[in-house]
């Protein structure tokens, strides 16, 4: 069982907060390896702008870049996202079960209160 540190989680969530970076990750999820210039095409920002986003994603360990000749190919590295998802799921399951119990209790109390006021 892999343990994900708080620092890693903060980097992952920090990287995912940005729409452009999420779009890049989504594309890398569909296509196995994409060149930097191809990745930059759909965006109305400059190539250096895209490079900055790629730096953030690489720092977070979410992508790898490899140079082949004059082309830099970008690939998805999904492990940190799995860590983030696992953390969220654990939190969600804990609170979700508690809110279910709260709802059941409140609904029983509502039935009692309605009977009393009748």
């Amino acid at each position: 069982m892999v343990k994900y540190t708080d620092a890693q989680l903060d980097r992952t969530f920090g990287a995912l907060v940005d729409q452009t970076r999420r779009t890049i990750l989504a594309r890398l999820g569909r296509e196995a390896g994409v060149s930097v210039s191809e990745l930059a095409k759909p965006f109305a920002i400059t190539l250096p702008g895209v490079m900055k986003h790629l730096d953030v994603l690489e720092d977070a360990g979410l992508i790898t870049r490899s140079k082949e000749g004059r082309t830099v190919t970008v690939r998805l590295r999904p492990d940190p996202m799995k860590g983030a998802l696992e953390w969220l799921r654990r939190q969600e399951s804990f609170w979700s079960r508690r809110l279910d119990r709260l709802a059941e209790y409140a609904e029983r109390e509502e039935v009692k209160a309605s009977k009393r006021s009748r």
């Binding site: 969530f13 969220l88 969600e92 979700s96 809110l99 279910d100 709260l102 709802a103 609904e107 109390e109």
Partner: peptide
Amino acid sequence: MTSLTLVRRIRA
């Protein structure tokens, strides 16, 4: 920063 949001509709 990480946050979790859950929504419940309760009949009460």
